[in-house]
Design a protein around this nucleic acid. Structure first.
Lengths: 102, 102
DNA sequence: ATAAACAAGTTTATTTTATAAACCAAATAA
DNA sequence: TTATTTGGTTTATAAAATAAACTTGTTTAT
């Protein structure tokens, strides 16, 4: 009936981060912070969780002399996101396709 | 960019309960328990939260001699659910309708 | 040159939430 | 009559989210 929801993605901030990264392909910490409205601390924690799960990669570089944290979604992350969306649909009373049920 | 998600609905079990109640109009505790796969304790707690928010009404009746907890979604709950789904779409990179944005 | 302010995060502590385990009361079965 | 089952509730624990405090280094002002 209801498919289980990946707890890692069923979080407002992490979902926003993933959504953002999927749409832009790569983004820096301050940009993500601004777009999501998250606090730096919260964002740092949630990015770590996504990275630990292999959903994103975090590349620490420098932009001139300033540290620059660059984030990118991985194929695993993209797949997880798509699966999450598919699972979520089972809760939304939306029938996206009437032909066959897996 | 990303609309905030109603925390009361952004919960796997509560979302399942709401989805279920919307589709069936009314349901008894054991049925909801079976359909969602929740434990009785967890279900009891989450139903209370939904009732406290006015998203559902819980009617305690008897079925013969046995107690029967009947749940029904309210108009407020239905509205909240619809709003939640609309907010959620801002995270899913899905453009459900290209004509006009409220 | 030194100090104050700022940028970019991280770490830690607090609060909230979810979940399960334990419990209770009444009804039915043995 | 004493288990056992049904239908839950309450309480305790584990996990999560979030914010506050802190760190490191840089830029700007004095």
């Amino acid at each position: 009936m209801f498919k289980p929801l990946d707890p890692l993605l069923h979080s407002e901030l992490r979902l926003a981060v993933m959504s953002l990264l999927i749409s832009v392909d790569e983004a820096e910490f301050p940009y993500i912070k601004q777009q999501t409205g998250a606090t730096a601390g919260n964002l740092s924690v949630q990015l770590d969780k996504l990275a630990t799960a292999g959903y994103i990669v975090i590349e620490k570089t420098f932009k001139g002399k300033k540290p620059c944290t660059l984030c990118r979604v991985t194929p695993v992350g993209l797949k997880a996101f798509e699966d999450y969306v598919a699972a979520l649909r089972t809760y939304l009373n939306v029938k996206p396709d009437t032909t066959q049920q897996t």
